[in-house]
Nucleic acid binder design. Structure first.
Lengths: 120, 120
DNA sequence: CTTTCCACTATCCCGCGGGTAAGTACTGCA
DNA sequence: TGCAGTACTTACCCGCGGGATAGTGGAAAG
């Protein structure tokens, strides 16, 4: 009965972790409209530390979700772009956003109701 | 340009966090086939501590994703079930699982290739 | 000859998420 | 009298994820 996801080697678990990762999703969204450079990402993704940016980019690259292109010029220039696999993942993220927008009111109403009841 | 998700109050961010949460997803999956009791969940979701189980259940209940029904009998009996909102979220989770199954081979191939190249 | 630019990489350190374990309340059954 | 069973809650503690900061390299600009 090993429910899909306690095992770390389960496909669902791995994708779920990726989706749950703040920076991964932000990067995928940023790259959805085309390739960007390291510093561009750093500037536009507010709050990310260089360490996490590099770490996350490496993880996404390793999983084949984005491509890393080094231009051998000085100063160095590196472009990051979604692969087709990354683009298909972005489709999922879009789906989540749609759901979020559609149902956030319900969720927030539930929260208000719950908190009001608990506080009483 | 405030990219959807750095702000905590963004709908996408909140849903993403929920999806990324191991126990939340496992519970939703477990409840997809019908209501279950506290101890049933504890037994079938391997590795969850009572603390996290309760904490996660409360969170999901607060968000209106599941309902908690207390039966005033002795010994106590509490049933948890997905609400319609919870069921619509489960549809998303299913979508993620489908994607995971369809693309996990690509991802793993990419990882093997990446690791082989790095180790060299 | 020093500074600047870009893309990292390395190191230290702190907060907190989550695990373990023990406590609680209630009642029926032996 | 006391133990079992259910659904928690509370207290304590530890590991590590991630932030901040500093270092690297090499060419060109001033």
């Amino acid at each position: 009965m090993e429910t899909s996801a306690y095992a770390k080697d389960c496909p669902s678990r791995q994708i779920l972790d990726r989706i749950g990762d703040t920076w991964s999703v932000l990067i995928v969204v940023m790259l959805a409209d085309g390739p960007h450079r390291y510093t561009e990402l750093a500037k536009r993704i507010e709050g990310v530390s260089p360490k996490m940016l590099t770490q996350t980019l490496r993880g996404l690259e390793r999983d084949g979700l984005l491509s890393r292109t080094v231009h051998p010029v000085v100063p160095p220039r590196v472009d990051y772009a979604l692969t087709s696999l990354g683009q298909s993942l972005y489709a999922l993220v879009e789906g989540l956003e749609k759901w979020a927008e559609a149902h956030i009111d319900d969720v927030q109403a539930a929260r208000v109701a719950y908190d009001a009841y608990s506080a009483k």
